[in-house]
């Protein structure tokens, strides 16, 4: 019922086939006896933002780390630009839920750290880092240390670090879950313009239905273990009506309701 209604609402307006940047095929992942993912298949169109949405513990982080090359699959494989993933690579960058900043390094060095590990010369990597520090709105904080910043500012550092290596695919694991509500809304708006302006593929993990619908071109709903994709939703109508109108667009509200209807039974 809910499904058919969702489909009606979500029929894409334009049906242009998009290129696939990342594809996950028949991924199974077991942690010992725990089946975290079972035979999961999902494709991520280039230049778009795909959300992985589902209750905690359903394997979102696991899938993201498999795509990042940080975890090995039990079976199945991930391809990025048609090449199988065997480990981390320069075409992907990760934004961590807990920021993962070096507490002993300045904002400048933290942002440049990805480039430092890739062997970019100091003057060049600092110049690039400075540009991205400005882009994420942290100009003036180059010499600050992470413990001197608020949670929102720290995640901006994490984001600038991921952007500065100029990877085609950005993997974000609940990047906004540790920041306050106002900052979070600002982040969501910034993320939308980032998706528009940078020609990158975003894979975005969240457990917030509203957040997923607000920022995504495509939402994959994962159900609890052993989890697989239960539904893929592609909102299309409200994306170009301006960010201020999204939250009261009827399509937005319908999708939020429908997702809740299909997830409700899994929440005790």
């Amino acid at each position: 019922m809910a499904m058919s209604q969702t489909k009606r609402v979500l029929t894409p307006v334009e049906n242009t086939p998009t290129e696939i940047a990342v594809s996950a095929r028949n991924i199974t992942k077991n942690y010992g006896a725990v089946e975290a993912l079972k035979d999961l298949t999902l494709e991520f169109p280039r230049g778009q933002l795909t959300s992985l949405l589902g209750p905690s513990g359903c394997g979102k982080t696991t899938l993201l780390k498999i795509i990042a090359g940080l975890l090995k699959t039990t079976s199945g494989e991930v391809e990025v630009n048609g090449k199988a993933v065997t480990g981390p690579g320069p075409n992907r960058a990760f934004v961590f839920q807990d920021f993962a900043l070096l507490p002993w390094a300045t904002v400048l060095r933290n942002v440049a750290f990805g480039l430092e590990l890739r062997g970019v010369a100091r003057s060049e990597r600092e110049a690039r880092a400075e540009k991205y520090i400005k882009d994420v709105g942290l100009a003036g904080f180059e010499q600050s240390y992470p413990h001197e910043l608020s949670g929102g500012m720290r995640q901006r550092v994490g984001l600038a670090r991921a952007l500065s290596v100029d990877a085609q695919v950005l993997l974000m694991d609940e990047p906004f879950s540790a920041v306050d509500e106002q900052t979070r809304r600002k982040f969501q708006e910034d993320l939308l313009s980032l998706v528009q302006n940078e020609n990158k593929t975003f894979i975005f993990v969240t457990h917030s239905i509203e957040e997923a619908v607000y920022v995504s071109d495509q939402i994959a709903i994962l159900l609890p273990r052993p989890s697989r994709v239960s539904e893929v939703i592609r909102p299309s109508g409200f994306r170009n009506k301006g960010i201020d109108n999204i939250r009261r667009d009827p399509e937005y509200l319908d999708i939020v309701d429908n997702i809740w209807a299909s997830l409700r039974s899994y929440v005790e």
Partner: peptide, 23 residues
């Protein structure tokens, strides 16, 4: 040590020597 620092370095391509001296 915070596990995600290690994962961060790994995800940006740190060699074992880099991870040892930088993390």
């Amino acid at each position: 040590i915070n596990r995600s620092l290690v994962e961060m370095a790994h995800s940006f391509g740190a060699s074992p020597v880099d991870a040892f001296f930088k993390i």
